[in-house]
Design a protein around this nucleic acid. Sequence first.
DNA 1: CCCAAAATGTAGCCGTGGCTACAATGCAAG
DNA 2: CTTGCATTGTAGCCACGGCTACATTTTGGG
Lengths: 150, 150
Amino acid sequence: MSSALSKTRQDHATETAEDYVEAIAEILKTNSVCRCVDLVSRFSVTNATVNKTVARLVRDGLVETQPYRPLVLTAKGTRLAAECKKRHELVESFLVAMGVSPEIATTDSEGIEHHVSKDTLRAMKRILESGWPIHQANESLHQKPSVDAE
Amino acid sequence: MSSALSKTRQDHATETAEDYVEAIAEILKTNSVCRCVDLVSRFSVTNATVNKTVARLVRDGLVETQPYRPLVLTAKGTRLAAECKKRHELVESFLVAMGVSPEIATTDSEGIEHHVSKDTLRAMKRILESGWPIHQANESLHQKPSVDAE
DNA sequence: CCCAAAATGTAGCCGTGGCTACAATGCAAG
DNA sequence: CTTGCATTGTAGCCACGGCTACATTTTGGG
């Protein structure tokens, strides 16, 4: 129970990278090129922040750039972006299927997506495809914790 | 769609505080006192890190301390801890109800809990109490995104 | 063709949350 | 009562992800 938090911590390291490559891939798909300015407006940060973050992405082999040129995703970056997109969409549609409004689902999925394990993703996929699992175990869940959120 | 990410970012600011007060409250319940050393082992960080973080908690009015004394939660800190605990337990039992193993549910819930809106929490509670919502809409979800995780 | 505006890059600052190394304190055993 | 060890505090370092201010480059309109 003690070491579980450290996993959460190290997730943070890759969150920004994931958000960026996902955004870059999406912008590339619609704009054919992706420039820093696009990321500035996407993330509502300054160009200085984008520049520094992109430098880290280059360092980590996710993006390639020449000075004053648009951004290019490496194969590694493209792979990561596709993975993140799939995960993101799965989480978002799961939330919608739960009955959460599309707007809230969009917001929440962006926060949640980085913290969902493959196991949980599989469970989401299974439920979307085959329905909620335990129609018998459902009963035994009523008294588990005090499920009385404010 | 652009501003949604900034919400996620600002969540980070309060994540650590929430993790700490939740841990402190839990330790207080079992140990009757909470010392820095308890947080050191709980979070697997050094005492210097705990000390600095606790200083921020004090600054933010969540914790009170005297030098070389155990930690005390303020009313505000206690309130926040209770809120987080409830939210954490709800997310965790929802994951278990989804069919995720208890171990994975514990880990994932620690990452997820900070990013779940009240709306989504309500949806989780509703599903735990009244079952999966839309047994008729379930069909129309099959072709939504390409739900074909790795 | 040139020049202004847009885009990009750079320098330097801040807060958070890590770390190591070391100082100071509290407590318990002898 | 002292002394050693556990605990707590402090100093100073680092990376990340923000920011402002300013420099540089690209590019489009006159």
